[in-house]
Amino acid sequence: MKDEEIVKKLAPLLAVRRPEEFWRRQKKNIIGAAPGHSTVSGTWLLVPAAAAAALVIFLAREPRGPAPEARAVSPAFLEHLDLLSDMDVLEAVPEKEL
């Protein structure tokens, strides 16, 4: 068989048959994906990115100041309280101040 005859028979065999809707959908997708074609469908991708960026900024920002620390209670203060409970306060007051 001649080369051209084989090519003529091979061409329809290897051609791809798809409904028109397939080609329309494909064309639409390509045009939508081409740079410069602004599409609403692509814009939504920015929303999670923006949310993530806001979260990172929030977490990374400088803390306003150290949280107020609970006042430390020294052992000396506790000992002082013990002494007060054991003794009669009035006796501890010098006579001149009474």
Binding site: R18, W23, Q26, K27
Partner: peptide
Amino acid sequence: IEEHQRRVY
């Protein structure tokens, strides 16, 4: 696209 998409695909 219309002219060549079948060939490329």
